[in-house]
Simulated assay, not measured.
Amino acid sequence: MREWNLPWEGGCRCGQVRLRISAPPLLTMACHCTGCQRMSASAFSLSAAIPSEGFLVTKGEPVIGGLHGAHRHYFCPYCMSWMFTRPDGIDTFVNLRATMLDDPRWFTPFIETWTSEKLPWATTPAVHSFEKLPAFDDLKGLTEEYARQS
């Protein structure tokens, strides 16, 4: 069992927006969709689903960026670091970009999504892979399995 040593602190690249995480992640992910590739300038984005009650912006005011659509992507208004995402209609968790944490060394993706769009050379150590997103009915089992392994 992993010792989480909460709370965690984190922030954007310039430090104008700071975060505090006081609950362990429900799930960790790598997303291979082309949107994440373009927003992260990488082969995939890394995120941790943090329960909303365990997520707090402690400094600054993030702004919505990205596509301004169903998924609200929050950025630092100064350095434009993509910090977290709040999926539309789902208020139970926040998808934190794991590299926004001051110490993300513990992070390993448990699932990877949108492998149908992944770059051919991109690999992760994720335990579960999905061509798109996991079925909503599968999320409970995935979060329970992640909790047991973490």
Rank of each mutant, 00 (worst) to 15 (best):
T58W: 06
A30N: 00
S45F: 02
P87W: 00
E3P: 00
K118H: 10
Y78L: 09
C36L: 05
L6Y: 02
Y74P: 06
M83C: 10
L56M: 09
N5Q: 13
L119W: 12
T34M: 01
P134H: 12
D137Y: 05
M39D: 03
V57Y: 07
K118V: 07
T143D: 03
A98V: 03
M39N: 14
G65I: 03
A30F: 00
A126K: 09
L19H: 10
A126I: 04
L46R: 11
T28C: 02
P7S: 13
H71I: 09
T28D: 02
Y146I: 04
F55T: 15
L6H: 10
H68C: 10
V127S: 02
F75G: 10
P104F: 11
R86D: 06
Y78P: 02
L142W: 13
R97V: 04
P25S: 10
R20M: 07
R2A: 08
I90K: 13
G11F: 03
A41C: 00
R72V: 01
D137R: 13
L139Y: 13
M83E: 03
I21M: 08
P87A: 11
C14V: 07
S47R: 04
L56A: 15
W4S: 01
E131R: 12
S150C: 08
H71R: 14
D88S: 14
G35L: 06
Q149V: 09
R97P: 05
P134D: 11
E53G: 14
G10E: 06
W8Q: 00
S81I: 00
M100Y: 03
E61I: 04
P134Y: 09
L101F: 11
H128E: 11
W106K: 14
I90W: 05
T99N: 03
P62C: 12
Y146Q: 06
